[in-house]
Design a protein around this nucleic acid. Structure first.
Lengths: 226, 226
DNA sequence: TAAAGTTTTCAAAGTATGTCAAAATTGTTA
DNA sequence: TAACAATTTTGACATACTTTGAAAACTTTA
């Protein structure tokens, strides 16, 4: 039974949907304003959020942004009938889907199931970064080569995550240092190089000798698809 | 550049969308009936299919089913305005999303991007530059002559990449220096020449004596289509 | 055709990175 | 707080890459 969180200020509609969704076999919790919903999300335990865009107080778009700062949980937005701008904004802000209000409950269920299918299908999860055989999971803060886990220290993970996010493009050492170590690179600073050396070694071990990290002399590094 | 396949019997609409999507940086191929579309999909090379539900002959839903028997390629369906049943059927049949017809091109693009984001975490590897036998892959930062890899240092790669991007036209040494080395050319600076010399040597070795780089005296270099 | 300037190529010099191991730092537990 | 483990940084040396200098070959112009 998947646990859903429904955030909608319209109490009556929310209860109706809750009833329908419960019949369909979901566990449903409701919240009637954005801030409460946000706290529920952070408390964890939900697999998907259904979020109304139009709410008094903190609206859905802001709530989505706040949720996205801490969580990769799938979010399905409920939008007003012809709010095309809102849909686009929502999708670009990290929503996984939207449904027009008022909606057919059957359609809502189909979409929920579609999202959960995507999420739970084995292999990489929704927000994992996949580059060839390499899987970097921000959510779990773990790295895999195929399905074999590779153990990284936290700095190493930060570095490979940054590289993976920009796979196929060059990331400068300065950028890596600022984002992963929180400080600017100074002369004779070898930290990045040394970390990269260990990362390479671990990936090579797990993959049987593959090197997916290219050095760009005097510039930085780049993660390549093998 | 992601390659899309657009399957729609409405030739005029298809061309309009193709133009818009091309402007947005996608590579678009069109097919005007389901069977042709299917064959294109199986031929591979596409990263997403945009599929009209309503088509004479084999309709979109059947096409979707056939595609799904062989391929997991993302499919975005175009549905008639109020065809709720169709949408649900499509989603359950393995479509990744749908958009109502007629649609805002912007929305279509946002949805395409959202799907590709989910799918790939980053752009596909369609960015290779092909000049005759020479293949320059920016994402992999590798160069091939036919299918034989050529090992370049990072500056060498930058240079050949720039030349390849402008294949058939002259690139000045000043440009090459700024883009590849990050500095303006100074008098008696021989770096570019020396690098080009090594590049030529390596390509010549791999290709059995072919020289694809022309010198334009006092100006720069040009990669020629052999 | 000669002179001036440019490019090709080789090798040496200068600079950056790869890697190992020791030192410093951080976090944990008795 | 001390002792320990884990992690990060630093120092040192080997390796790799880029730039420079110089001689020879080439192109342009007068």
């Amino acid at each position: 039974m998947s646990k859903l969180l429904l955030i909608d200020d319209d109490v009556e509609l929310a209860n109706m949907l809750k009833e329908f969704l419960t019949q369909e076999g979901f566990g449903v919790t409701t919240a009637h304003d954005g801030l409460t919903g946000e706290q529920y999300v952070l408390a964890g335990k939900f697999e998907l959020v259904i979020l109304d865009v139009m709410m008094p107080g903190q609206d859905g778009m802001q709530t989505l942004k706040n949720i996205r700062q801490h969580s990769d949980i799938p979010v399905l937005m409920l939008t007003a009938k012809d709010d095309n701008e809102g849909r686009i904004e929502g999708l670009e802000g990290g929503a996984d889907d939207y449904v027009q209000k008022p909606c057919l409950p059957r359609e809502l269920v189909a979409r929920i199931r579609a999202i959960l299918r995507r999420q739970n299908s084995d292999g990489p999860k929704g927000n994992d970064i996949v580059v060839g055989q390499l899987i970097v999971s921000g959510e779990r803060r773990k790295v895999f080569w195929g399905d074999q886990p590779i153990v990284f220290t936290s700095t190493e993970f930060s570095l490979i995550e940054i590289l993976a996010k920009h796979a196929g493009t060059i990331v400068s050492k300065e950028d890596l240092s600022i984002k992963a170590l929180g400080r600017s690179l100074v002369k004779y600073d070898r930290s990045i190089d040394v970390h990269l050396s260990s990362i390479r070694q671990k990936i090579s071990e797990a993959s049987g000798g593959v090197n997916v990290i290219q050095t760009i002399y005097r510039v930085g590094y780049q993660l390549v698809r093998d």
